[in-house]
Design a protein around this nucleic acid. Structure first.
Lengths: 156, 156
DNA sequence: CGCAATTAAATTGTACGCAAGTGAATTTTG
DNA sequence: CAAAATTCACTTGCGTACAATTTAATTGCG
């Protein structure tokens, strides 16, 4: 943002107020486009997109407390509790109270949940085709979004 | 994506499978960060973030059929119908059947809805501060996301 | 030690998103 | 022109997101 625009009451040109000019909408609509692109792929393995993200976390480390999963995905227990309940019903995870700290629930991959890891190459390969840009471009956008997310979050 | 990776059964390095390496997650989590950044700002005018997007569309053109709003936001009537009902209850829009084609519902700004346009400079100014990057960077990310969204969508 | 403050997860209530199905209006087609 | 197909919006059902509240467990402090 330019210095001139930092003034609270600065007039913004009408053209800049159009939906398509909004960075927020670019992010919002791309997120939806991703979810839709994943849908037919994840349907084949019986996961929703947020459930797939949880599985990605668990494939990195097979047993984690709900809180840690939430920190990595930036989701609270209000979202995760019912989602994890559905993953448990699907037989991919189990939830057990931590004996060391009964407040915590440890989420652990079942053998089925672990076995699903073998599908990841196929899933990522298909999505990679849909993304249809170079690896360098992917890294570039990813890092820029990471910085943007940091900016948006830092004043919380 | 490199040529080597286009092979369906290509093995992807473990490191590339981590959540934080996923472009989809960068987009997903940034979208949530935006919604959270907008929350306190939009609370002051009584709008949710998706409702604000609908208002942006209507501030460009004060009367539009539901279908057109849906095309611009890439949302279907299953999402828009209840959302528009809430905007109508808030007194910002009215919905009327098009006499030329009774299937269509025309959404029109009320004077209150139109008057809220005066808040836009303030809202965009505040978000601009939260985004905290240069205009050039904003344009760069926006255009790259636009291309990415196009790629993800074109095979629908 | 004992009680207040904190923490973790679940629950409740509201609002998206989206698939699938309904019903009314319009367009296409034989 | 009439039946079939299509279009548009609405509704229903499911699964997130998230604020706010609740309950149980743990930690901190006097």
């Amino acid at each position: 943002m330019t210095k001139a625009q930092t003034t609270k009451t600065m007039k913004i040109p009408e053209e800049e107020k159009r939906l398509e000019r909004q960075l927020c909408f670019a992010v919002y609509s791309t997120a939806h486009a991703f979810t839709r692109a994943y849908k037919p792929i994840l349907d084949k393995v019986g996961l929703t997109y947020p459930q797939y993200l949880v599985m990605l976390v668990l494939w990195e480390k097979a047993a984690l407390p709900v809180k840690t999963i939430g920190e990595q995905l930036d989701l609270d227990s209000g979202t995760l509790s019912p989602l994890l309940k559905r993953l448990e019903q699907s037989g991919l995870i189990v939830r057990t109270r931590d004996p060391k700290d009964e407040r915590q629930v440890i989420v652990t991959l079942t053998s089925e949940g672990d076995a699903m890891r073998s599908q990841v190459d196929g899933i990522m390969g298909e999505i990679g085709k849909a993304i249809g840009c170079t690896l360098e471009e992917m890294v570039d956008i990813r890092e820029k979004l990471h910085g943007l997310r940091g900016n948006l979050t830092e004043t919380r």
